[in-house]
Write a protein that binds this DNA or RNA. Structure first.
Lengths: 131, 131
DNA sequence: AATTAACCTACTATGTCAATAGGTAATTTA
DNA sequence: TAAATTACCTATTGACATAGTAGGTTAATT
């Protein structure tokens, strides 16, 4: 199940895209519009900044804004950044040590097919599709 | 991410289908073939029995066996039984109280589309496809 | 009676989720 | 330069899920 962090992050990016007026948008406004605790959103935007998806500026007139056009953001990269991984199962996760049963496993191809389908879906969805 | 309980359950059902000789198959054998702790599998098969997916018989010559033909088992129903839910997000879960923001939520249709795709995938996959 | 195997209750360590709390640093404006 | 605004930082918490383990009881067969 997709966590609130991932889902809220997509909503933040979408909110920034929708309310873009060329300037910076304070987190307070996003929190109010999205009805999400500003305190919790701080954690999320911090990671989005660290991941290079949005930019923040302190002080009056400050806030956050996108770094690219909405068509350039895939939902997949946002989820992957927030959740740390988009793997459907542990053995397909990046950095997972190779499973000795992989050759004999009857279910591996099932999970791999699902994994591929999921990634294709979310990486082809762009923020511009949500506005 | 799909939990070990869900994945192991699919492997148990697949193992029972593959090694079906008309009789009952002891858990010990399944655990050995699948290289999964028998103790942990006990928890899983108990839920499979309770859910009516397999049948167990005690005593010598006992064990477990399927209740239907392998083509009649979808991976989806196994996962749903073990994980309790297959909802992609909390607000689409069965029994979730209706979200007041549903009308305004820009992301709801995205999650709904993903949810549908996932369910379609797993409910159309049968155990007979894995043997 | 012995053996086999399912079935049952309970426990536990670890980790993640979804936040909250309280502060510090940076920037603008009066 | 002081006040206001806003991002940014570290730490903590309660609740819950995950992935098992431990040890015993019941049922069925030989």
């Amino acid at each position: 199940m997709i966590s609130t962090k991932g889902r809220y992050a997509v909503r933040v990016i979408t909110d920034l895209a929708k309310n873009n007026d060329g300037g910076y948008i304070p987190l307070k406004d996003i929190a109010a519009r999205q009805e999400i605790s500003k305190k919790y959103l701080e954690i999320i935007v911090k990671e989005l900044v660290r991941g290079g998806l949005i930019a923040g500026v302190s002080g009056k007139g400050g806030g956050y804004r996108l770094c690219r056009e909405p068509e350039q953001y895939s939902v997949g990269e946002i989820l992957e950044l927030m959740e740390g991984s988009m793997a459907a199962v542990a053995c397909l996760d990046k950095g997972a040590d190779p499973c000795p049963r992989a050759e004999n496993c009857e279910t591996l191809s099932l999970w791999a097919e699902y994994d591929r389908m999921t990634k294709d879906f979310f990486y082809s969805k762009k923020i511009s599709d949500l506005i």
